[in-house]
């Protein structure tokens, strides 16, 4: 089996890890240990700077087909992020596969702040990954999708227990809503979700090495 991990963190964070992922070699060794063929990754540097994190993600493993960088999205107005016009070209040049929109960061995802970026992502089908570490995370997904219902939005699930109440309504209402499973582990939950919505709506994601 070939796995594509939708959420992998590279670079050294503030906490020590048993599985270092500071270099391309270390990341690939980790992926090999678990039989993961490709990973979409974010950079640990995103924890201290969005522009630096995006720059370091793009330069972490250029030309390594197994590692696809993701950028963090923030409003472009302060010059921290490409403008809506520049974004598709900039992503292509840097080999960036998706954008992470983290509602925990200090910015608003409402239309005034991110609307132009979301509009171009909706039109070009650029995937937006939205961390949902707690249940209100799904309310954020709902809020963005109500304004941009065709946005390819992938919730990065951070929950262990009971996804159905939160994700099934979103899966039902928005055909472009997807779910990266993360630590989802309730007996039968993945199977029942696939039965109702099909496996195409779900992604495998580890959140490794956390």
């Amino acid at each position: 089996m070939n796995f594509f991990d939708a959420d992998f963190l590279v670079g050294d964070g503030p906490k020590p890890s048993r599985f270092p992922t500071g270099t391309v070699g270390e990341v690939l060794a980790q992926m090999d240990h678990f039989g993961i063929q490709r990973s979409l990754f974010r950079s640990a540097a995103h924890a201290w700077s969005i522009p630096d994190g995006n720059r370091l993600a793009a330069s972490f493993a250029p030309g390594e087909a197994r590692l696809v960088p993701a950028w963090f999205l923030v409003p472009h107005h302060a010059g921290e992020f490409p403008s809506p016009e520049e974004l598709p070209g900039a992503m292509k040049r840097a080999g960036v596969g998706a954008l992470v929109c983290d509602p925990a960061l200090p910015f608003s995802t409402r239309r005034t702040f991110c609307g132009d970026l979301f509009a171009v992502c909706e039109e070009r089908r650029i995937p937006i990954l939205m961390p949902a570490p707690d249940y209100p995370g799904y309310e954020k997904c709902d809020q963005v999708l109500c304004e941009f219902p065709k946005l390819t939005l992938v919730a990065l699930n951070g929950h262990s227990w009971g996804l159905a109440r939160y994700t099934w309504p979103l899966l039902e209402r928005f055909p472009s809503f997807h779910l990266a499973l993360g630590p989802c582990r309730v007996s039968g939950e993945v199977q029942e979700t696939v039965k109702r919505f099909g496996a195409r709506r779900l992604c495998f994601s580890t959140g490794a090495p956390r």
Partner: peptide, 17 residues
């Protein structure tokens, strides 16, 4: 009470086992 458990009846649990 916390959340729906899709495999919590006796036959479902035995199938999982």
């Amino acid at each position: 009470v916390g959340f729906p458990m899709p495999r919590s009846s006796t036959p479902e649990m035995i199938r999982e086992m």
